[in-house]
Each structure stands twice: as structure tokens, then as C-alpha cells.
């Protein structure tokens, strides 16, 4: 066996042990060590050299990055998640025909979709979605993220929140909690426009606060323009801007002048 390969596997074993102990600090140290060691393998992306050990090396590297992604979720570091995920991705796309599929693939892809949703990067969410095969779309982990996005877009927020109970994988909980915060802000924004006023009890229920004081705190911090009076939250309607009686003269002049200029060019 190649000495380099054994070295990496040994470090990885230590990493896994630390991971099980939930000793994340050691994990992080070992991980950066592993990443440096991995650069010595020529069979890994982007070189993809066909060495005799290629399959073993690729499988090991994939395993390491999969753990790295999960680790980043555990230590709640979204940037690290993004970095590790992008390093992992070529193993799923470009090395697909060289390796046996990984059981972790769909949970991690689903996790990434969820991350994009939480960060409100919907365009990237859909770009990722296009890369998945129809059979992948039926996977419960992926399905979960897709349904969340749909409910989110429609505005069926309580469906988003109830989805937390049915997470397909324990690592999803972190992002689901983040999503709950996003959803609360969305609900607050919608209520502001849709209601004239809400009783404090209803508002608390709708925005998922466990107590009245939490709601009042939230209002104070995020929406100081709301008014709390007689046991009800009164939303200050955005200034009525239905009809503008004034003629936007400057704009009109500019437009007309440009028409005249263009017409002159034609005639």
C-alpha cells in the first residue's frame, strides 16, 4: 500500500474518532491537515490522473469532504459549508462514472439546497436543482428541500414550519432553525401589509413567539414603527400612494423629446 495513502487514512481515522467524541476543535485541526495531504494525490480533481490507486484515493477523499461538510454544519459555520461543499461537488458530478455512489450524496445535496434557501439564494437553488436527475428528485432528502421552497414561495409558512418535525436527517435541524427566523421576518413583512391591526395574542401565535414579552421585544428591535395599543398591534400602513395627482412633468418631457429625436432619425 502506498505510504501516503496509509498516512491519510490514519489521520482520517483519528478525525472520525474525534468526530464521534464531538471534539470539534481537534476535528478542525485534523481536517486542515487532511486537506493538505490530499493535495498530493494526483488522481483527485482537477487532475483526474488515472493512477492504479485512483478509485481508493477518490473514495477516501470523498469521504473526507463529506465529513467536512457535516462538521461545518455541527459547528454552524455556513462559509465553511460552502467551501467544503464546492470541493466535494466534483466527486459527485465529474467522478460519477469512476466511483460507486455514496450513500451520503443525497442528504448532502439536500442540505446544500436548504442552505441556499436559508440564504435566500433562490436562483442558485434552481441552478442546483437542474443538475439533479428525475430519480434524485424523488429522494426524500431532496424532496424535502423542494417542497420547502414551494411552500415558501406560495406563502404557506406554517407548512414550512411544520416541516421541521419531519426532517429526513438530523443535520437538517440547524438549517431548519435558521429558516424559522427567515420565515418569521417574512410573516412580519406580510402581516404589516395585509392587516390593519392584530390582537397581541394572535400576533404572538402567528409569528411563533412563546411569550408576549418576546413579541414586544421583537417589535421594539425590528419594527419600531408598529404601535401597540389597547392589547392590539396596529400596523402603520405604508403611506397611501394610490393615485398621484401630480403630473411627472420632467419624465414626460424627457420621453417626448426622445420620441421626437428617434422619429426624426426615421423620417
Amino acid at each position: 500500500m502506498d505510504p501516503q495513502f496509509t498516512e491519510v487514512s490514519q489521520v482520517f481515522e483519528r478525525f472520525k474518532a474525534a468526530f464521534l467524541r464531538k471534539d470539534f476543535e481537534t476535528c478542525n485541526k485534523l481536517l486542515s491537515q487532511l486537506k493538505v495531504l490530499l493535495t498530493k494525490f494526483t488522481s483527485l480533481p482537477p487532475l483526474f490522473q488515472k493512477t492504479p490507486n485512483a478509485v481508493h484515493e477518490l473514495t477516501l477523499a470523498r469521504d473526507i469532504y463529506e465529513h467536512a461538510v457535516v462538521l461545518s454544519v455541527k459547528i454552524e459555520d455556513q462559509d465553511a459549508f460552502e467551501r467544503d461543499f464546492f470541493q466535494l461537488k466534483p466527486y459527485y458530478t465529474d467522478a460519477r462514472d469512476r466511483l460507486p455512489p455514496s450513500p451520503q450524496e443525497y442528504p448532502i445535496l439536500g442540505l446544500n439546497l436548504l442552505r441556499l434557501l436559508v440564504q435566500n439564494r433562490i436562483a442558485e437553488f434552481h441552478t442546483e436543482l437542474e443538475l439533479l436527475s428525475p430519480s434524485a428528485l424523488d429522494n426524500p432528502c431532496i424532496r424535502h428541500a423542494i417542497e420547502l421552497e414551494q411552500s415558501f414561495m406560495e406563502g404557506a409558512y406554517n407548512r414550512v414550519l411544520s416541516a421541521r418535525q419531519s426532517v429526513p436527517h438530523e443535520t437538517y435541524v440547524y438549517f431548519m432553525d435558521l429558516l424559522a427566523k427567515t420565515v418569521r421576518d417574512e410573516i412580519a413583512g406580510c402581516s404589516e401589509k395585509a392587516y390593519d391591526s392584530l390582537s397581541i395574542k394572535d400576533a404572538q401565535q402567528m409569528m411563533l413567539f412563546s411569550s408576549e414579552s418576546e413579541l414586544l421585544q421583537y417589535i421594539k428591535e425590528d419594527h419600531p414603527e408598529w404601535e401597540v395599543k389597547n392589547g392590539a398591534v396596529i400596523f402603520q400602513k405604508a403611506k397611501e400612494s394610490t393615485s398621484c395627482k401630480e403630473i411627472p412633468s420632467l419624465q414626460l418631457i424627457n420621453q417626448t423629446l426622445s420620441y421626437a429625436k428617434e422619429l426624426e432619425r426615421i423620417v
Partner: peptide
């Protein structure tokens, strides 16, 4: 859905916004 009225309410709220 299990809770159509609450769903409808939030959907309408979002449409208004």
C-alpha cells in the same frame, strides 16, 4: 392541506404584500 384556513391566510397575506 391539514390546515387550509391558516394556509389560505398566509398565502393571501403574501399575495397582498
Amino acid at each position: 392541506s391539514p390546515n387550509p384556513i391558516a394556509d389560505a391566510e398566509s398565502i393571501v397575506a403574501k399575495a397582498i404584500r
